[in-house]
């Protein structure tokens, strides 16, 4: 989703006072360090309960406007609440020139058991930068924790022809069957994609 569209979608949900807060915060994000306080306080201005994703979207807009450098991004993540960390991960797809330097943040999130962080970690940035082993482990973790396959960006392209991923999935399916448990439907979906295409 384009940032301009995201901004329109967020504004559609906000009342007048909150829109004024957002406009002020975004303007400051481009020019002053004060925006970090707004980044922390986003949910109490854009009530997260009514629209859980509103605070995420607002924080992504702030990150996009502020264009923090890598040390700042790392600090925002490591000093962040789970919600702030999720926003940093989701914003990686919208921040140019990060390169592979943000990978430690993705890897940190993939070590957690907070499925909201795991789902945010497997977006387009992970599809582009995670190495083969890390990406396979991420897919398997999603299947383990119930994060839907559709949260994994570009999975059909990355899974295609991946024989090692096929082996890991087959072993996991066998383990589930041996325990008398269902094999997740998402496992069958991704496994089907690992078969090399016919020449």
């Amino acid at each position: 989703m384009l940032i301009a569209d995201l901004r329109t979608a967020v504004r559609d949900h906000l009342d007048g006072d909150t829109t004024a807060w957002l406009d002020r915060a975004l303007a400051e994000a481009a020019t002053t360090p004060h925006w970090e306080a707004d980044f922390a306080a986003a949910a109490r201005h854009c009530r997260r309960g009514q629209h859980p994703e509103l605070a995420d979207a607002t924080r992504i807009l702030l990150l996009h406007a502020a264009r923090p450098d890598m040390p700042t991004l790392t600090r925002l993540y490591s000093h962040g609440t789970a919600a702030e960390r999720r926003a940093v991960l989701l914003a990686l797809a919208h921040i140019e020139d990060v390169g592979p330097d943000a990978l430690p943040l993705v890897e940190d999130a993939l070590r957690t058991n907070d499925t909201r962080l795991v789902a945010a970690a497997v977006g387009p940035y992970a599809a582009r930068h995670l190495d083969a082993h890390g990406w396979r482990q991420a897919v398997l973790k999603c299947l383990f924790t119930g994060v839907p396959l559709d949260a994994v960006a570009e999975w059909p392209a990355r899974a295609r022809g991946d024989a090692e991923l096929a082996r890991m999935l087959t072993d996991y399916a066998r383990e589930r069957t041996a325990a008398g448990r269902d094999v997740p439907a998402d496992l069958t979906r991704v496994l089907a994609h690992t078969t090399p295409e016919e020449p």
Partner: peptide, 21 residues
């Protein structure tokens, strides 16, 4: 904020209409 966020895996993702347009 006394509303409880739905943490069912995928709930946020599926309900992420704002982020998904």
């Amino acid at each position: 904020d006394l509303d409880v966020e739905d943490t069912t895996p995928g709930a946020t993702h599926k309900g992420n209409s704002i982020l998904r347009g």
